[in-house]
Design a binder for these strands. Structure first.
Length: 417
RNA sequence: GGAGAGGUGACAGAGCGGCCGAAUGUGCCUCCCUGCUAAGGAGGUGUGCCUCCGGGUACCGUGGGUUCAAAUCCCACCCUCUCCGCCA
């Protein structure tokens, strides 16, 4: 949720929201609704004050005065009921309209849409197309079996087998050890959550059709560990000296991938179920921008440590999503497609998400909303497939990155069986 | 899945429909006393929102209801705990 007071008073803030697609009309309508809400709230509260006062007098009144006083209080109560329903309507309107206004973009974010990102840096050499694409390689070695998974569960599922499993666990261990070194606390969150948590974490209603629902139990399968980490300190007041609070959540993630028919159908690139280590930080307003850089740096350490060629981009304002004020993506060169594909991303949500969650920081002499950030430490499936291609030798064998060897004891991936 | 108990402030734990934002105890903060510490004494100690900065208002698991008035009565839901069953 945006800061309505600031939206009405801070021109830069307002401009940031407009850069993300909120129209002047959206904003003015919202602000008008907000001032109506404040007005009706004041009316309702003063009526309630009068009503409370009248009620208290009844308790102290003589028996013979009671009837009159009750009648008078009853009259006030009717007015109050009306005022309260006006207020509820005004609040509803503000709530609905505020969903249309995204978290303002940071000044360093370029204008434009999906294509208008800014490349911040490029690292590593881009290999030529490999002998096997990642999906061919998986089938070739028998370590990713999509064909049988179709029988089991349908398209966009896979059996991961043999050395791919060992590689997966090595990646998890490696990523978590890197994150831990930066103070991130490892967490395994629940993968099934209530509807309310999906809303509070900002995934509902927007991404509702991307989420699996277990109707019988009214629970939802998370699409990322971010859900559990964002909700960890809901309605809590964090102490300034315990910040930043950093978490690295490891979980399976489930996505329906609605509306992606025909895209990336082969291999592990886009599947309904995958594992991921997700970073999440709670900070103050003063430190969140530094924290974003820290997360990005950690992500680069991970991707770079795996010796994958990548570029870092700053996502343009129109492609940010509602919550992010700024977002970096790390895109890895995928040799079979001869282009960069997204592997990780990290965002500063500033206070937008914390406002909805009511996560606050108690300072020296004031309490303010926390700033939250999140980022991918390692999307296992996608990282593996990037290794399959970028570390593939001319003969089609795949060399395991140095840093993972202590964790899996493999130098080269072998075929199953 | 079956049976029962319960959800009140940092914690423990009271609370007749009005004088309850809520006793009391512990903890915490300030001060006094005191070689130090402990003990003892005095005062203070929740959060959100609105504000003409005087205040006002809301919150006792959540949401409804009854009433002039609800922590207190009614309904539904959620959660926790105990026992039994099942189980990685």
């Amino acid at each position: 949720m945006i800061d309505l007071r600031r939206l009405s008073q801070d021109a830069d803030y307002r401009h940031g929201a407009e850069r993300k697609g909120a129209t002047a009309e959206n904003i003015d309508t919202l602000l008008a609704a907000e001032s109506r809400r404040l007005e009706t709230m004041q009316t309702a509260e003063s009526l309630r004050a009068a009503s409370n006062k009248a009620s208290k007098e009844i308790g102290r009144a003589n028996p013979e005065e009671r009837a009159d006083k009750i009648a008078a209080a009853s009259e006030l109560k009717q007015q109050l009921t009306q005022a309260e329903s006006d207020l509820a309507a005004a609040e509803e309107e503000v709530k609905t309209l505020s969903l249309e206004v995204p978290n303002p973009a940071h000044e360093s974010v370029p204008d434009g849409g999906e294509e208008d990102y800014r490349v911040e840096k490029t690292v590593g050499d881009k290999p030529a197309a490999p002998k096997f694409s990642h999906s061919e390689l998986g089938e070739h070695l028998g370590i990713v079996d999509s064909e049988r998974a179709v029988r089991m569960s349908g398209s966009r599922f896979a059996y991961v087998k043999g050395d791919a499993v060992r590689l997966q666990f090595a990646l998890v261990q490696w990523a978590i050890s890197k994150a831990t070194a930066h103070g991130f606390i490892p967490v395994i969150p629940p993968v099934l959550v209530r509807e309310e948590m999906m809303e509070l974490a900002g995934f509902f209603p927007t991404d509702r059709n991307q989420v699996y629902e277990l109707e019988q139990d009214e629970l939802f399968l998370i699409g990322t560990a971010e859900v559990g980490l964002a909700g960890l300190h809901r309605q809590e007041r964090l102490q300034l000296d315990e910040l930043p609070l950093r978490y690295a959540g490891y979980s399976s993630c489930f996505r329906r991938e609605a509306g992606t028919y025909g895209k990336d159908t082969a291999g592990l690139f886009r599947v309904h179920q995958f594992d991921k280590v997700e970073l999440f930080s709670y900070t103050t307003a003063e430190t969140s921008w530094d924290e974003l850089e820290l997360i990005r740096q950690l992500q680069e350490e991970i991707v770079g440590g795996l010796e994958l060629p990548y570029q870092v981009i700053t996502v343009a304002s129109g492609d940010l999503g509602a919550a992010a004020a700024k977002k970096y993506d790390i895109e890895v060169w995928l040799p079979s497609e001869q282009r960069y594909r997204e592997l990780t991303s990290c965002s500063n949500y500033t206070d937008y998400s914390a406002r909805r969650m009511s996560t606050r920081v108690v300072g020296e002499d004031s309490t303010e909303l926390a700033h939250t950030l999140n980022g991918t430490a390692c999307a296992i499936g996608r990282t593996m497939l990037n290794i399959f291609e970028n570390h593939q030798q001319e003969d089609g064998t795949v060399v395991v990155p140095e840093v993972l060897r202590p964790f899996c004891g493999l130098e080269v991936l072998s075929a199953v069986g």
